[in-house]
Computed example of a mutant assay.
Amino acid sequence: MRLRHPDGSTIHLAYCTNVHPAEDLPGIHRQLSGIAARVRTLLGAERLGVGLWLPRQAAGELLARGDELAALRERLASLGLEVVTLNGFPYRGFHDEVVKYRVYQPDWADAERLRYTLGLAEILAALLPDDVTEGTISTLPLAWRTAWTQDKATAVMANLDALAQGLRALTHRTGKVIRVGFEPEPGCVIEVTPQATALLSEVDHDYLGLCLDACHMAVGFEKPGAGAGTGLPIVKLQASCALEAPPGAQRALAAFDEPRFLHQTRSATGYVDDLGEALAGGLPADESWRVHFHVPLHADPPPPLTTSAPYLRDLLDTLLGGPGPLTRHIEVETYTWNVLPGASPDLAAGIAAELDWMRGRLTSLGMKEQ
């Protein structure tokens, strides 16, 4: 969906398709024709933004065959869908039975991460609507923290330089500007936005910046305005909510301790890599916990649990409630529907409800749907 900011800017709102377990092109086409098309119908939207997740296999097929890329563009147009942003964080296997730490591989010290991301940029430049000249890609915050060395840091910076050069060359070739946003996440080399300032201060800010994930920021107990004070461009906002438990009520989180995804958990004084560790005594029970479990934007979990939806509202106010937007691409990223306890089997209805919640929040800030 597109909304007009009071300053005249176009704000693009999409949902991220990493919620769908598709690794190849036939699967991508099925998810677009099925779920995404139905979401658009439920919303009554003339066009629906989709933040495509293209795993390595699907991306390779698109790059190898120009006819497949043209066919995808035509399919999107015929379904009333448009793509201005890609999620380039998961590389493949995002819906394997166990993902956990594997989602951070390959990291930005690996040349394969560079090749994959530049390939995504080529694809996105070809998929952008004719009246859009700027696209965005979100990616991981360099690497998981435990194997970080000086040699790895040197390799990362060389790859980021090559990434910026490749994106600049793509602009010269196509007239399209594709920017990449690094997404701070608990447990990674860049956990919170101040670390992004320190580690990304020397990169090319014309093409490289931040992707702010509201769930990650809430789990990190960051202030909503933290991302706006880094000096780095905010390439994209991922609209997401974390799971919260008040002091003494953490056993209610046990239903969310599932084996597929990593659920980093933090309190005011502690941090563990996964929810199971916290439940086993890794965090103090007399403090509130915030869990990296993306829960629906529009609905509360069973009490006594809550979500960080108030944090997301404050972040939207900060980024979009001023005289001009601090980012123009918003991607709703609740990828956990398939592991969410008690979730409705109607995935399209759930996604549509989230997008409708977001649409209402944005219009309350003075924006008008185009």
Rank of each mutant, 00 (worst) to 15 (best):
A45D: 04
L48K: 06
G49M: 08
R40W: 06
Q57D: 03
G80Y: 13
A37D: 12
N87G: 06
S78A: 15
Q31L: 09
Y91I: 00
V50W: 00
A70D: 13
R92P: 02
V84R: 14
E23M: 03
V50I: 04
H12N: 06
G27T: 11
F89W: 14
F89I: 09
G66Y: 03
V50K: 02
H20G: 01
T41E: 15
I28T: 06
A45K: 05
V39T: 10
I11R: 12
H12V: 05
L63I: 10
A58W: 04
Q57G: 00
A77L: 12
L43V: 05
V19H: 04
L62T: 04
L32F: 10
L32V: 07
A59S: 14
A58Y: 04
L81T: 07
L69E: 08
L63A: 08
N18Y: 11
E61Q: 14
R56S: 07
L69I: 10
A22M: 12
G51E: 15
A64D: 01
H29Q: 09
E23I: 04
Y15W: 15
L62Q: 03
E74S: 09
A71P: 01
R40P: 01
R30N: 11
D67T: 14
R92N: 09
L43W: 06
G88P: 10
L72P: 04
R65I: 00
R65C: 05
L42G: 03
P21G: 05
S9Y: 11
E68H: 14
Y91M: 03
E46I: 03
V50F: 00
A22H: 14
R38C: 00
G93T: 08
F94D: 02
G51D: 15
G88H: 07
Y15V: 04
L72Y: 10
R75V: 11
R30Y: 08
L76K: 08
P21S: 11
L13T: 02
H29Y: 14
Q57A: 08
I28M: 07
T17G: 11
H29A: 14
L86F: 11
H12K: 02
I11G: 02
V83A: 05
A37Y: 05
A70W: 09
A59Q: 11
R40A: 08
N87H: 13
G66H: 03
F94L: 10
A37F: 11
P26G: 12
L62R: 06
T41S: 15
I28L: 15
L86W: 06
V83P: 05
P21K: 08
E68S: 13
S33A: 15
L52S: 01
P26Q: 10
L76W: 01
V19S: 07
L54Y: 05
G88S: 11
G49K: 12
L48G: 09
G66S: 08
G51M: 10
R40V: 12
Y15M: 05
D24H: 14
R65V: 03
P90E: 03
R38H: 05
G88L: 12
L52T: 01
G44R: 04
G66F: 02
Y91R: 04
T17E: 06
A64I: 01
A58N: 07
R30T: 13
L13I: 11
R47Q: 15
N18P: 00
S9R: 15
A37M: 10
R75T: 13
E23K: 02
L81S: 07
P21V: 04
V19Y: 07
